[in-house]
């Protein structure tokens, strides 16, 4: 599995620190370790391949969510948070 910060193939607009903070906050809310959240978010993006190929998320253009700055990693994190509610 690839580290979230090592994934290739997408335009990442947010800095790594912002990602880290967002992951830690989400982990806290979800009662999970930040490492596990990060692992899940990375897998959402790359399906284990090391390359962001999730067109539906990493292609971003999520017109409904301006909070994520269109960074696919933040978009994937939002998706993971919603997934935990489903």
């Amino acid at each position: 599995m690839t580290e979230l910060t090592d994934i290739e193939g997408a335009d990442f607009t947010a800095d790594d620190e912002k990602i880290q903070t967002a992951v830690e906050e989400a982990a806290d809310d979800l009662g999970m370790t930040p490492e596990k959240v990060e692992e899940e978010v990375a897998y959402i993006l790359d399906s284990g391949t090391g390359r962001a190929n999730n067109e539906g998320v990493a292609g971003a253009a999520a017109a409904d969510n301006e909070d994520t700055d269109n960074d696919p990693r933040l978009e994937a994190l939002e998706m993971f948070k919603l997934r935990q509610e489903l």
Binding site: I44, S47, G48, N53, G56, A62, A63, R83
Partner: peptide, 13 residues
């Protein structure tokens, strides 16, 4: 869009 995001993530695997 949300549905597509979940679907596309599943399809990635």
């Amino acid at each position: 869009n949300k549905g597509f995001q979940f679907i596309s993530t599943d399809e990635g695997r």
